[in-house]
């Protein structure tokens, strides 16, 4: 069964969770045997941008040691044979230089989403 997870919210609680929890659960489901691809839209389109760096958060003297690496999560996901789509218009609206993206992601136009979605047996929007 071909499954697509759509991720729209970007950087939501990623500092507390130390991961994007939707990319994380997609990974976990894939490890359990799922055939899953990702579609990134809205703020999540920034995830494949290279050069991101998170300073460890320290609050009340408690320092974070494993800062989130959302780019790394996408890199790992796409490196294992899954497709990661990114909506082009959402990149443009955010002034994201397409050359700064992870090479393996597939940039798609919003008008092509119906065709892409209709090719999946199951689509979950997170």
């Amino acid at each position: 069964m071909k499954h697509l997870n759509i991720v729209s919210s970007g950087y939501r609680a990623t500092l507390e969770e130390q991961d994007d929890t939707i990319v994380w659960i997609s990974h976990a489901m894939r490890n359990a045997g799922a055939e899953i691809d990702l579609l990134l839209q809205d703020a999540a389109v920034n995830y494949p941008v290279q050069g991101q760096s998170v300073d460890p958060v320290t609050i009340g003297g408690r320092a974070q040691r494993s800062a989130p690496d959302v780019h790394g999560q996408i890199r790992s996901f796409v490196g294992n044979g899954s497709a990661v789509y990114v909506v082009g218009e959402d990149l443009d609206e955010r002034g994201i230089d397409r050359r700064k993206l992870l090479q393996e992601v597939k940039i798609v136009a919003r008008k092509d989403l119906p065709k892409i979605l209709s090719g999946y047996d199951r689509v979950w929007h997170w």
Binding site: I25, M29, G33
Partner: peptide, 11 residues
């Protein structure tokens, strides 16, 4: 449970 449970249930 775990995400594997989610996958099993959904499937």
């Amino acid at each position: 449970g775990t995400p594997a449970d989610l996958w099993k249930m959904a499937t």
